[in-house]
Design a protein around this nucleic acid. Sequence first.
DNA 1: TGAAATGTTGGGGCG
DNA 2: ACGCCCCAACATTTC
Length: 484
Amino acid sequence: MSSPAPLIFWFRQDLRLTDQPALTAALAHAQQTGQRVIALYILDESKGTRPLGGASRWWLHHSLTSLMQKIPLTLRKGPAAQVLADVIKQSNASGVFWSRCYEPYAIERDKEIKASLTARGLLAESFNSSLLIEPWELKTKTGTPYQVFTPFWKAARAVIDAAPTIIKPLPAVDPAGLAPPLASEQLSDWQLLPTSPDWAKSFTPHWQPGEDGARQNLIRFLDHAIHDYKEDRNLPAGQHTSRLSPHLHFGEISPRQIWYATQTAITAGRVQPDANSDQFLAEVGWREFSYHLLYHFPTLPHAPLNAKFAAFPWLDNAKGLRAWQRGMTGYPIVDAGMRELWQTGWMHNRVRMIVASFLVKDLMVPWQQGEDWFWDTLLDADLASNVCSWQWVAGCGADAAPYFRVFNPALQGEKFDASGAYIRRYVPEIAELPDKWIHRPFEAPKDVLQAAGIKLGTTYPHPLVDHSFARDRALAAFAEIKGS
DNA sequence: TGAAATGTTGGGGCG
DNA sequence: ACGCCCCAACATTTC
């Protein structure tokens, strides 16, 4: 007699076992019917998807490794629909459970998969695992999607505060209900890790991919940095942020867990319910807002939300783009940020705004090219957040920074890295400059440069462009499209 | 989740 | 003593 048909749980951007509604439901359903659950991860880089960036591949490798230490996991590579069909055939499975993704191509693919499974009489169930509120659940009074953060967040908080149970995380699943893996591909065969050169070696001390690392970052943040978060989150030199972004992207932790842990710390008196905790929750809110926007405006990854920007006179500036990517623009705060990104797979958010403003406004490079670079190099590369943030900086997005709001890199550096500690860490060739000149070596007197062992144009680049000139140029370009 | 230009005010130097 | 000017310091406007 054959054993009952198993269910398949399809892991995607939800690589965790706690607060896992889809897996919890699959296991509960299986238990009732005497089934077991096959845990499956599919590496789907087929046409139509956006292939993972290099940094994301590194993270995925380690996150899957961490998950496989806890549960049996079957690995397969290929177009998801085809892989699922194969696995269903092999295992005689009676259904598939998964957590929703919201990238336009994922929505389209998953819809087809669901329809096809259902048509064949199989169970196909999807769940919300990664958002506090589904993108279609919030609408303005006139029934349109929100395009401004503040009212969006006000409405979202009202929903959350009125129904505290929606942020109550589920307990960890019991892996006993999981089936042994089917014939699985080897993770090492996927070659997710870089070799020759191993440019990810320097990532290791900064990150612990997987559910345990995510929890540790959250606990550490709630114990320390949250107390002065509102102001200190702007300082890139210290550890003033949660560093949860890659964990969130891969679903190693859910926003519900973050929210609940914060509320619990407040109730216990370990955290004050003040502007600092509100600011932290609002940052979670920006992620929700990005998903809301991406869902309702699926062209966002390619096209400016503000149609006027279609006519913006971007420059074909390959040389500038390359210097920016390598952290060789001659503006210390920009170069420090780009090198932090390269070395650690992450960049402080204040600095992300500065480098993005520099690329888009000072160099007039199309924001899509910056978005591409971030997609490839960020461990937390996330379509919704990345695209919305780039459009925000470029001035063409929702609730965007006005185009004429141009960051002055030297002033931003002086304001948020007054002691130059961040610059000296990532741009060591100018470390000997005194604080007064560390953010503007191009204005330092000759003898100061010499004493610091700097020869501009040799040991550190001249500025790629003069900021004051670039600012005027950007404003003129903006004026061109303003009336269009 | 700006910066620069322009306007206003008031203290102090100085004839 | 008074008016004039300079210029921080701060506020407002503009991009």
